[in-house]
C-alpha cells in the first residue's frame, strides 16, 4: 500500500496530485505506527505529515507552478544505482534480528531501565513523555532549538510580507459560506483538543509537539476559510514571534532554575520538596515551552509562505 503510493508519487508529474498523494502516504504511515504500538508517533505523523507539510507544499506550489517538466536525461543510470544500493541493503538485512523479537539489541541497552523505573522515578504513566522530557531532556531541548532555528531561517529567507492596504479583508469571499460556518464550529474544539493533548500528555498519548501542531492547525484552518488578514489580526506575527522565543526560554529557564536549586541542568527532582512532584512540575513546564514554540513556529512559517504567495 505504502509502496504503491510511493511509486505513484514518483510517476505523476502533476505536482498538485503528488502533494495530495503525499498527504495520503503520511496518513498511511501514521496508521502503520499505530499498529506498531507507537501511539505518540502516529499522533504526530498524522498532524504534521498529513496536515502541516501538505499545507506548506501547497503554499510553495502556489508560487512555483503545478507542472513538472519531463526530465531531460534518461532514468536508467539512477535506476541502476538505486537497485544496486537496495540489493546491498537487503543483503545486509539477512543478519538482522527478526521483527518483534524481544531479544533484539535495541531492547538491551537503556530501554529496560526506562520501562521498569520510569513509573517510580518520574511518576507518570506515559513512558514516552517521561523519556522525552526528563531522561532525554537535553535532546528535546536541542530539537526545540532546531525548530526555532528553522523558523529564523525561513523568516530571513522569505519573511512575512506586510499588508499595505488596511481595509478589512473579506472582500474576495462571500461572507458566511458553508466552509466558514463549519470552520467556526470546528475551531474551538480543535483548540480545546490541543490544550487537552498538551496537558494530558503525562497520562495518555500526547505532549508539547503534538499539541503545538494541532493548535497551529486550528489557526491555519481559520486563515484558510476566512482570510490571512483575519488570522493575522487574531494572532499578530509580532506577538507570535515573541511567543516562539519565549517557549525556548521557558525550556532553558526550567533547566537554569533546577541548577539554581542545587541540582544539575534539567534535573527536575529538586524543583519541589518531593522529587516526584518536582518531576511533574518540570515536565509540565518544558512541555509547555515545547508546545508554545512548535505552535508559533508552525503558524509563522505558514504566514510566511502564504503572504509570499498572495503578494505575487
Amino acid at each position: 500500500m505504502l509502496g504503491l503510493t510511493a511509486m505513484t508519487i514518483i510517476r505523476l508529474r502533476s505536482l498538485f496530485a503528488v502533494v495530495m498523494l503525499f498527504s495520503i502516504y503520511s496518513l498511511l504511515t501514521a496508521s502503520l505506527f499505530m499498529v506498531l504500538d507507537a501511539v505518540d508517533v502516529a499522533f504526530t505523523e498524522a498532524a504534521v505529515g498529513a496536515g502541516i507539510s501538505t499545507m506548506l507544499m501547497l503554499g510553495t506550489l502556489m508560487i512555483t507552478g503545478y507542472r513538472e517538466k519531463r526530465p531531460a536525461h534518461s532514468p536508467i543510470l539512477p535506476l541502476i544505482v538505486v537497485v544496486l544500493t537496495g540489493a546491498v541493503l537487503v543483503w545486509g538485512t539477512l543478519d538482522m534480528p527478526h521483527f518483534g523479537s524481544p531479544d533484539q539489541p535495541v531492547h538491551q541497552h537503556v530501554a529496560p531501565r526506562y520501562i521498569d523505573d520510569s513509573p517510580k522515578e518520574v511518576g507518570i504513566p506515559n513512558m514516552v513523555t517521561s523519556v522525552l522530557a526528563s531522561y532525554r531532556g537535553y535532546d528535546t531541548m536541542g530539537e526545540t532549538i532546531v525548530v526555532f532555528a528553522a523558523l529564523i531561517g525561513v523568516l530571513s529567507l522569505i519573511g512575512i510580507k506586510k499588508y499595505t492596504n488596511k481595509e478589512p479583508g473579506r472582500t474576495e469571499k462571500p461572507p458566511e459560506s458553508i466552509l466558514q460556518v463549519a470552520a467556526k464550529l470546528l475551531i474551538p474544539f480543535i483548540l480545546l483538543f490541543a490544550l487537552y493533548v498538551q496537558f494530558h500528555g503525562d497520562f495518555g498519548p500526547g505532549g508539547g509537539f503534538q499539541a503545538g501542531v494541532i493548535f497551529a492547525a486550528g489557526i491555519i484552518l481559520y486563515a484558510l476559510t476566512f482570510s490571512l488578514k483575519d488570522a493575522m489580526h487574531l494572532a499578530p506575527p509580532k506577538v507570535v514571534k515573541v511567543i516562539a522565543a519565549f517557549g525556548v526560554l521557558l525550556y532553558g529557564g526550567t533547566g537554569i532554575v533546577s541548577m539554581l536549586k542545587g541540582g544539575t541542568f534539567l534535573n527536575y527532582s529538586v524543583l519541589a520538596h518531593d522529587p516526584i512532584h518536582g518531576q511533574h512540575y518540570g515536565i509540565l513546564l518544558v512541555e509547555l515551552g515545547v508546545g508554545l514554540t512548535v505552535a508559533s513556529v508552525m503558524m509563522l512559517i505558514f504566514y510566511a509562505f502564504v503572504s509570499r504567495g498572495e503578494a505575487d
Binding site: 504526530t44 535495541v106 531492547h107 522525552l132 535532546d139 525548530v147 528553522a150 509537539f209
Partner: peptide, 22 residues
C-alpha cells in the same frame, strides 16, 4: 514496546517538517 525509538522519531518528525519548510 520500546519507548526510546518512539521519543527519537516523535521529535524527528517535527524537526523534519521544520527543515522541509526551510
Amino acid at each position: 514496546s520500546n519507548p526510546l525509538p518512539h521519543v527519537l522519531i516523535l521529535t524527528a518528525i517535527v524537526v523534519g517538517v521544520a527543515t522541509t519548510a526551510l
